[in-house]
């Protein structure tokens, strides 16, 4: 009665599941654009570097918020942890090699993510939101008070960073090295995140996001998964922070603040949560918009951004990418009906 049909694996749904991780034809596009940007806009490489760092930071947030459904308003804690790790190690001449510096920064941020996650992730919803905010505020205050080590309010500047691979110097005036270096690291991190979200682990994270109670009922160690996801995400945010510190050769409190945490959240919501490229689209849209709005209306440019966010939140819960997706869906449905 329940004998399996012979062609189970050929079922369209099974094929779709089996093929969803494959590289789409348009996926090289953002990377080609990033390389083209390097050649076309040599004067804007500083801006470009900043954009790439922001994308990486937003990707790390996407992993916890978009995939695992962990609502956090304190993700800049890990960005800051990474930035200060690299900054302090270099400033005091302990460690100035950039790539291993990233690894150390990731480890420190991951450790903070792990320990705080063990405590925070017992809670959900508003409590969780407030606790993530508190964690970040504690770190921020620590950075502010530990003036001897962190430079306090002024931060640390002229942080010395060794050349990449011992050859390519970081030059603050011509950030060519910074741009390519950050692009390379972003690419590697993206591949890692992409692999992760399409794995069974990533699938289980979406399960937790969709229905945590049911995940308990299928025998999943929910909290362990969440802590692990939070730790991985913290490490990536730490790398983003470290890149930021290395590329700019300074660290200050802005790495840790609510401003940064809220901005990255806005970017992700704008681009689309839980869909990998939302971070790219959101970061570009946010940065371009703030640039233009600031030009048009210098005193209250954030008003325009706020309005856009309200519209997105009301009418396009899945962000800009979500709008595209539903448009494509409708197009496909139309074509299917007419054929």
């Amino acid at each position: 009665m329940t004998a399996p049909a012979p062609a189970v694996a050929e079922h369209p749904a099974a094929l779709a599941l089996a093929g969803r991780h494959r590289v789409r034809i348009w996926e090289p596009l953002p990377w080609l654009l990033a390389i083209a940007f390097y050649f076309l806009f040599p004067k804007y490489l500083g801006f470009g570097t900043d954009l790439l760092v922001t994308i990486l930071f937003a990707l790390s947030l996407d992993l916890v918020l978009g995939y695992a459904g962990i609502v956090t308003l304190g993700h800049a804690a890990f960005f800051g942890a990474g930035a200060y790790t690299v900054g302090m190690l270099a400033k005091y001449g302990i460690w100035t090699e950039p790539i291993t510096g990233l690894v150390i920064a990731a480890a420190v941020a991951a450790a903070i993510g792990f320990v705080s996650g063990l405590i925070l992730l017992r809670t959900t919803g508003l409590t969780l939101l407030m606790l993530t905010l508190c964690t970040m505020a504690l770190l921020e205050e620590a950075a502010n008070l530990g003036q001897e080590y962190t430079g306090g309010f002024d931060g640390l500047d002229s942080v010395p960073i060794d050349p990449v691979f011992g050859i390519f110097e970081f030059n603050p005036l011509f950030p060519n090295t910074q741009y390519l270096y950050v692009l390379g690291v972003l690419f590697l991190c993206f591949i890692f995140i992409r692999t992760l979200v399409y794995s069974p682990f990533g699938q289980s994270l979406t399960g937790i996001r969709e229905n945590m109670l049911r995940m308990h009922a299928v025998g999943a160690p929910v909290r362990m998964r969440l802590v692990l996801c939070y730790t991985i995400s913290a490490a990536i945010a730490g790398i983003a922070g470290a890149l930021w510190a290395q590329a700019n050769a300074y660290v200050n409190l802005s790495a840790l603040g609510l401003d940064r945490a809220a901005t990255v959240l806005i970017i992700l919501v704008l681009g689309g949560c839980g869909r990998l490229y939302g971070a790219f689209v959101g970061a570009i849209a946010y940065m371009a918009l703030s640039h233009f709005l600031a030009k048009i209306y210098p005193t209250a440019w954030q008003l325009g951004l706020g309005l856009l966010l309200v519209i997105i939140a009301l009418f396009a819960r899945n962000g800009i990418l979500g709008i595209f997706q539903s448009f494509l869906h409708r197009l496909k449905a139309k074509r299917a009906r007419s054929s």
């Binding site: 089996a18 069974p200 289980s204 299928v218």
Partner: peptide
């Protein structure tokens, strides 16, 4: 899939794509 993945113990695995677990 999520239920079967938990039961068979592959759910924590992170590198191989979920869909290729035939």
């Amino acid at each position: 899939y999520i239920a079967v993945a938990e039961r068979t113990g592959i759910a924590p695995s992170k590198l191989r794509p979920a869909g290729t677990r035939k």
